[in-house]
């Protein structure tokens, strides 16, 4: 009798299926337009907030840099954030003005930026009862990344909330906390926050285990 591919770790539990890199062609599966392929009726992509979504409309952008200082052009990123009231809108529905989930990718052109059209999230409660500063959870996949890297994006115009955020405070080095703080820019009257993600070396972004 053939055994299933799932593997027990004990009589009580199974081992989690192992992760493998998403590879250089992740786009054909999860970001069809970026691969140059036709899209389906409904795709999960980077417009998290439509124009009628409640809250401050923002664009969030960045690049991804490797340990040599070179652009990572084939990174794929997922975003998860609260709405303007600090609530997660888990039910993914493209007819709603806002979805808490979005996807983006760096591009193969010169700038190689990822971007999200969203709203600034409200504050969310930590289990301790304290408020966490507004943040967006980011999950990064790429060729050469064997298991996803998990980080958070915070906002540089929330310095008071950031200083009290119980999750940011978990990071021992104050200098490293700065790697999660996006910088506000105004471009053509629109608000944009920029966060560059450094996978390795000087200014390496903080990645979380949870």
């Amino acid at each position: 009798m053939k055994q299933p591919n799932s593997q027990p770790t004990s009589d009580l539990m199974l081992r989690e299926t192992a992760s493998q890199t998403a590879g250089p062609y992740v786009h054909i599966g999860l970001a069809l337009a970026a691969a140059g392929n036709p899209v389906r009726d409904e795709e999960i992509w980077n417009e998290m907030a439509k124009p009628d979504a409640e809250g401050e409309h923002i664009e969030v952008v960045g690049i991804v840099i490797d340990g040599n200082g070179d652009l990572v052009r084939d990174a794929f990123i997922e975003a998860w954030q609260a709405d303007a009231n600090g609530d997660y809108q888990a039910d993914y529905d493209l007819s709603k003005p806002f979805n808490s989930f979005g996807r983006t990718a760096t591009t193969f052109d010169r700038g190689s930026e990822w971007s999200l059209a969203t709203i600034k999230p409200g504050a969310v409660k930590h289990p301790s009862g304290q408020l966490m500063a507004p943040h967006i959870n980011l999950t990064l996949f790429a060729r050469g990344v064997n298991i996803q890297l998990q980080t958070r994006l915070y906002f540089d115009d929330e310095s008071e909330a950031n200083a009290q955020c119980p999750v940011l405070s978990r990071i021992e080095s104050p200098a490293r906390r700065q790697t999660l703080i996006a910088k506000r820019e105004e471009v053509d009257g629109k608000v944009r926050y920029r966060l560059d993600i450094r996978l390795q070396g000087e200014g390496e972004t903080v990645f979380f285990d949870f």
């Binding site: 490797d66 340990g67 040599n68 070179d70 990572v72 997660y88 969310v124 409660k125 930590h126 289990p127 301790s128 966490m132 790429a142 060729r143 050469g144 990344v145 064997n146 890297l149 999750v167 978990r170 990071i171 490293r176 996978l199 390795q200 070396g201 390496e204 972004t205 903080v206 990645f207 979380f208 285990d209 949870f210």
Partner: peptide
């Protein structure tokens, strides 16, 4: 060149 050198920061108490 794509692997972090710093340890992951354990959240201890994951949040919502």
């Amino acid at each position: 060149a794509r692997s972090p050198q710093q340890a992951l920061v354990s959240m201890q108490q994951p949040t919502v």
